[in-house]
């Protein structure tokens, strides 16, 4: 099968959906013909679809998402890009109070089919305002779906589903994933929300990992396999809805669970997943749940400081060994 990068897979999803549906349009800062998006996801799209549908905006995150909301409730399917995940804080009212609540608050009168795409993640030395992983903020808002693909295949299939859906989707990307290559078929496919993917089967311990951490978990699993420890790596792919069943089934099989997520530990993604298993499958656990996450600090700048706080393969291996 052909291989494309995560970035190209996202671009293909946007291109295909824009060709299929004239109500789909993109807006965001520097996404158009002059720059093609800070991470080049939208490169070339303005040339094909024009500046109206691939719309550069002023630096106004709140108005970007608000405009997407207004367009979504009047017949369009906007896809907004927020250049860095950290900057979603500037648009939080529109995401959490408006987009997420309009369908409910107005008694189901109107649907809000919009997507907000944004990259999270540390690892490129750009410090505290451009490196966070804030997925959990959005998991805490009923009315939003939260997608978090780790591979080009998942990125394309989930983004197409997000664009075709009828709910606001917060679409988490990761800046270190953009250049990663993976198999993506030529033919069209969609990936439903709420269906986790077992990225590697194993028998001794379940490692639930998200976004870039999936790749580190797979590296760790490979190394542990050499030492005779069989690791199953589960990628939820969407955090809301969360596929509890695949996670619980895996835990039933292995009896052990490590959760790996790049966000800081307190009240993070890993806390929710741990709580689900504690509530619904604790009898199947043979060891305490372990969480590998960032310590509760802002992301520091200096390379040795930054590397210290980002979860790595060593930390995953250590956590696995503590439970097996």
């Amino acid at each position: 099968m052909r291989k494309v990068t995560y970035r190209e897979a996202l671009r293909e999803a946007l291109r295909e959906e824009m060709r299929r549906d004239p109500t789909v349009f993109l807006l965001g800062e520097d996404i158009g013909r002059y720059w093609g998006g800070a991470f080049k996801v939208t490169e070339g799209l303005a040339e094909e679809f024009g500046d109206e549908r691939v719309r550069d905006t002023p630096i106004s995150e709140s108005a970007i998402v608000g405009a997407a909301v207004g367009a979504a409730i009047t017949g369009m399917r906007p896809v907004a890009e927020i250049m860095f995940g950290d900057l979603t804080a500037l648009a939080m009212d529109q995401i959490a109070n408006q987009a997420a609540k309009i369908h409910y608050m107005f008694g189901g009168q109107v649907k809000v089919p919009l997507v907000v795409r944004t990259p999270f993640g540390a690892g490129v030395n750009i410090a505290a305002h451009h490196s966070q992983s804030l997925e959990a903020w959005f998991m805490h808002v009923p009315g939003l779906y939260v997608a978090a693909p780790s591979t080009p295949y998942d990125a394309k299939g989930l983004l197409k589903t997000a664009i075709r859906g009828y709910n606001p989707v917060f679409f988490c990307e990761h800046k270190l994933l953009y250049p990663i290559e993976g198999e993506v078929p030529e033919e069209e496919y969609l990936i439903p929300f709420g269906v986790a993917d077992v990225k590697r089967e194993g028998a001794d311990v379940t490692v639930v990992a998200t976004l870039y951490m999936v790749h580190k978990a797979l590296n760790a699993a490979e190394e542990l396999g050499g030492e005779g420890i069989s690791v199953e790596v589960v990628d939820p792919r969407t955090l809301t809805p969360l596929d509890k069943q695949v996670i619980i089934n895996s835990v039933k099989k292995t009896g052990r669970m490590v959760i790996v997520s790049e966000d800081c530990k307190t009240a993070g993604v890993s806390a929710e997943i741990a709580a689900v298993v504690a509530e619904e499958a604790i009898d199947y656990l043979d060891a305490p749940i372990k969480r590998v996450a960032e310590p509760d600090t802002p992301i520091p700048f200096s390379p040795p400081l930054e590397q210290y706080v980002i979860p790595d393969e060593k930390a995953i291996i250590k956590a696995v060994k503590e439970v097996v």
Binding site: A63, G66, A67, V69, G70, I73, M76, D93, N97, Q98
Partner: peptide, 20 residues
């Protein structure tokens, strides 16, 4: 298109309707 109780929250939504 709805009343929002966040002061100023409806203004960008109106812009979005205009864009639409």
């Amino acid at each position: 298109l709805g009343a929002t109780a966040v002061v100023g929250g409806g203004i960008p939504i109106a812009v979005g309707a205009g864009l639409s």
